[in-house]
């Protein structure tokens, strides 16, 4: 009996010490970690629009976030969009409720600044303040709209879909006509060397420049990737003078309407990404259309 007490005591103490060490490290590193994640998302977004170290984001470029929530009030289910609105020089947020058919229900003013809106707890507090106390809401996703001056340049949308093993998380950039500007794989757990190749430029860059009409019917073909196309896709390996401007245009035109070339030995992963992207674009185009309609009809001056 004495022995077991001793063991229990020793184990409890070791666990407590371990927990204290881990907890301490977590507290110390939490802030830096969050900052990193935020920077990572920002960098990816800018990268998708073609900006990076050598090509900084122009000063007149602004990013506006729209947060989508699913709101349940008793029997009724709505889609709630937190839309940034321009009020003079200040940017505020309104909550636009649409029913499942996409028809406008109501508009509620929110008191939250764009900086505060980046934090989920702050958004939830703002939503709670205006919604019926019985309402339930679930966070959907965040769409970022990039604007240069007064012109809308791109939509950046995060997405998640099942891959070969588990979910693949991506970030997709679309231009206002829903042509794909770029695809970035954020997280995945596909097999290294096989499905893991989806992160390679010669796969993910195939989605570039695909027009909305093409994306709607995008398929995967099990044909070897043509050599010139592969060279063209691997932008990071480009050397000075490898392609002339005409050649780039020519290759781009040639492959614009082609389907996605499957990865060797990873047809399932290739197909998952292709279908995932296809669905993301289709759904997004539908949603954004409905939202814009509602905003225009209600004369809500959105910031984007």
């Amino acid at each position: 009996m004495k022995e077991i007490l001793k063991i229990t005591f020793a184990l409890t103490v070791s666990c407590l010490i371990a927990a204290a060490v881990m907890g301490l490290t977590f507290t110390v590193t939490a802030k830096a970690k969050k900052h990193n994640e935020h920077m990572n998302v920002q960098e990816t977004m800018q990268g998708l629009l073609g900006y990076g170290k050598n090509n900084p984001v122009p000063e007149d470029m602004t990013f506006h976030s729209v947060y989508r929530y699913i709101i349940e009030e008793g029997e009724n289910k709505y889609l709630g969009y937190m839309v940034p609105v321009a009020e003079g020089s200040e940017e505020g947020y309104v909550l636009v409720l649409l029913d499942l058919g996409g028809n406008f229900v109501k508009k509620l003013d929110l008191t939250i600044s764009p900086e505060a809106a980046q934090e989920e707890p702050e958004r939830e507090a703002a939503l709670k303040a205006v919604l019926d106390p019985s309402a339930h809401f679930t966070y959907g996703d965040t769409i970022v709209i990039a604007k240069r001056g007064e012109k809308r340049v791109a939509y950046l949308l995060p997405g998640e879909f099942p891959g070969f093993k588990t979910f693949i998380q991506v970030m997709l950039a679309l231009d206002p006509q829903f042509t794909i500007l770029g695809l970035e794989i954020m997280e995945h757990e596909e097999d290294p060397g096989l499905g893991g190749e989806i992160v390679q430029e010669y796969f993910k860059n195939q989605f570039r420049d695909k027009k909305f009409d093409k994306v709607k019917a995008l398929k995967v073909v099990k044909v070897p990737l043509p050599e010139e196309y592969k060279k063209y896709l691997e932008k990071k390996k480009w050397k000075e003078g490898m392609f002339t401007e005409e050649q780039i245009q020519e290759i781009r035109k040639k492959y614009e309407d082609k389907d996605i070339y499957a990865l060797t030995g990873a047809t399932i992963s290739s197909r998952s990404v292709t279908n995932g992207v296809k669905n993301m674009v289709k759904k997004f185009a539908y949603r954004v259309g409905k939202l814009e309609d509602a905003l225009a009809k209600q004369h809500i001056q959105a910031a984007f």
């Binding site: 022995e3 063991i7 184990l11 070791s14 371990a18 060490v21 881990m22 490290t25 590193t29």
Partner: peptide, 28 residues
């Protein structure tokens, strides 16, 4: 280390270090 709980103690030690390294790496 109590001889009868050596293995749990080892596992705990390893897990702690792994977590610490994981957190520090991801942050810095």
């Amino acid at each position: 280390i109590h001889p009868r709980i050596r293995i749990p103690t080892y596992t705990l030690t390893i897990a702690t270090w792994v977590t610490v390294i994981d957190l520090v790496l991801s942050a810095y």
